[in-house]
Design a protein around this nucleic acid. Sequence first.
RNA 1: GGAUCUUUAGCUCAGUUGGCUAGAGCGUACGAUUCACAUUCGUAAGGUCGAUGGUUCGAGCCCAUCAAGAUCCACCA
Length: 879
Amino acid sequence: MTKQELLSKTYEPNKFEAAIYELWEHGGVFNTLKGHLAGDDASAGPATCKSSNNNHFSILMPPLNANGNMHIGHSLSISLQDILCRHHRAQGTPTSYIPGLDHAGLETWVVFEKKLNEKGQSRFDFDRNTLYQKTWDFVEENKNNIQLQLRASGAGADWGNQFYTLDDNIRAQIYATFKQMWQDGLIYRGERIVNYSTKFQTGYADIEVDYKEEKGFLWDIIYDIKGSDEKIVVSTTRPETMLGDTAIAVNPSDQRYSHLVGQTAILPLLNREIPIVADDYVDAVYGTGAVKITPAHDPNDFEVGNRHNLPRITVIGFDGLMTAEAGQYAGLTVEKARNEVLKSLDKIGKLGEKKKIVHTVGYDYKSGLPIQPLLKEQWFIDMKPLAKKAIAAIKAKKIRFYPESRANVLISYLENLRDWNLSRQIPWGIPIPAFQNTSDPTDWIFDDRTDLTEIVADGKTYRRDEDVFDTWFSSGQLPLSVMPDGFTPISVMETGGDILFPWVSRMIMLSLYVKNQVPFTDVYLHGLVLDQHGAKMSKSKGNVINPMEVIEQYGSDALRMGLVVSRSAGQSQAFGLDKVISGRNLCNKLWNIAKFTSGILGEDYLRYTGFATNQNRGAGEISLNEPVENWIVARALTVKLRIDKLIADYRFAEAAEMLYGFIWGDVADWFIEAEKVYQNRDLLAWVLQFTLKLAHPFLPFVTEAIWQTLPFTTTILAAETWNDADFVSAKSAINELATGEFEQLKTFVSSSRELLANLPKAKYKLLYGNDNLIKSNSDLIKNLLKLESIATSDVGGELPIVVAGREAWLDVPKKVKQDYFANLRTKLEAAKSEIAALERRLLNPNYTEKAPAELVAETEATLKEKQQIVAKLQAELSQ
RNA sequence: GGAUCUUUAGCUCAGUUGGCUAGAGCGUACGAUUCACAUUCGUAAGGUCGAUGGUUCGAGCCCAUCAAGAUCCACCA
């Protein structure tokens, strides 16, 4: 089969996309080492565009869940990253796009545990090591799936350097960091109130708690004062926790209660004696001004308890049930205990008012159940020093943010950051390298031999902490462990705006801490991909779009185009299939441009050698003979420079739209149409290869597929770099005058079409006077207007076409002429009022004095032009 | 309680330091059509740029206030 025959009649992406990806991968196009080797094409290539830091460009792919599937948000993310990488690669910049998969701690664990449960097994049937192995195997089985999806998305990633967040080098880095922090005194173990998921039996980070505002009740509970008839009333939203009360607190300056401070209150139901203390934490004007203190179940009460040396009584267990401390309520769920406590209180007359209120309640973001604040020993990082460095770096603009406003949002987050709970009580993750002395619970040592559960040091036996690290602690260090030499800091961190806090902030802090270097210089955040009505996609709503299905139906390029257009940094935006279809149509257009061009070139066409200058034309050189030919080359060069600039500014949507307009509006509608007349083979070949190169980052598959079929190409498009010499010779070959002439021709043709648009059949003649432009382009005009004939005429014809400087008429029926004149009069009026406005502006001394001189000159020129048009219109009308 | 973002054509959105008549795609209307493409071609209609003030020679863009919507952060019982 010849190359040309490969260019099938219709554009059917799913017939070639997989093969194209294989071609790239086999060709080593995405291999990061390319460009480092002496004499390699990439390093020898010219760079038309500015290069990134150290003349290297790098992107770290935010790791996808190894056990998951891509969703449409991933597709957007991958598209943007891949556009950047392919663009920079084509500039000749050594480029590294490092792909990776995430073990995704809790996310994966939840899926695996569900599977276990389905088999009638539970996590309690196995020890943590066994569970870890089982989960590992489960993930290994599914890893391949997501990698296939990434390839289907066109991600031009360096698979030879791919990472998995459980890799040895990644673990080693994490342990090294943990050790350094341990030695610096930033790591501490403490009993604190943690956000606990009773469903998954693990603590969460603050950021993993999903707060929801909801309606609830505020109950008053009446406490007796010991040795007095007085009562004290407290309000609470969680009556069941009163079983764990160890004090009542009031504001020290609250006159109402000052005489009670130091006295003892009797806890109803349990008849426990608890002190009344004074603490600034209490807001005297809220509720009754007296607060029950439950140090084991509320972070604020915990603090109050510390200040007043109060005991901590745990009444809710890690299983979410009431503990033995809860007396008769032991074993009940929190909800049942609440009802029972309320009933009991009511029975003994200790329940006061019940008020409706709106308050925020923390929920488990995975299970949707309420988060229990529970007392637990965990590992914490003191975040203050880390945050401080990060804030300084951001303020010093060492990292640029797109959109810019996110920098300030991040700073205020960092300023209020609390200590980070690192411990997770799940089997799936990286074990914490800390061991506890079996005979002294306060004696903890660091040791990275986490494959052992027990070690002996200094003659003492230590047992490993069973917990694993929070996933963000490990993914927050990826820039430190996975980037190839020479590619740090990472050029662009492209990721979703929703993980600015959990991930981006941590990478910045940890990289600054460990290496005293920012992990990346630019952060580009994309928004959510919403459904076509602007609603969040979610499984429960059933409005989720599976990107693989879209790719199957419309092609990977179409999906990429559909996602990228109409989207600016950080903005969540609706996604509709109409945009994908429009992308598919563009691919189809490109396909047909290629088919037309190939048809004219023939199978034996060999590559041109460059542009001819003036008359000195050598064999295979491109000559620009016609106005349209000069115009399209000039246009191509301009568009390329503009797209380069737009990509450098991360204005992807505008770049994509510019490309769309170039392919469809300039190349197809004007150039190709014109070449049906001229058939300049060399130029057709040049324009096609240029367009394919330009479009490649946005439409990698279709451009490569076409490239592979061209008779004059033997290379891989994805590995092609822009050639400066070609650019220069193209530029020097352009005749500016001819370019301008084609602009005039375009206007002339458009105006004529407007006249002809609504005529039943275009069987008319175009007559023209002494006009060289029309004369020398008569064939083209006749073709573009689909006219029957075109001829010179000394006398004015029926219907004048009014375009500045042109003399031409259409031979049409009287009726058409009359309508046209009516139209002309409206235009005349419009032009006149524009002139009036321009004159007014020029008469305004404030304008002429204060506005820039060029602008004033431009206004004057416009005025003259308009005046000419009016004169002409008036002349035509008077005929 | 604090903060951020959004509001431009019927729909989804662009509009880069303020500068001529505010753009695109889709949709709509009218017309065309034997080969590159119906996944097509041509033409047109459609906008007081959320509201009100202000700064300026000039505001979709800058400032203030307001309205509507979205999101994030925060331990108020």
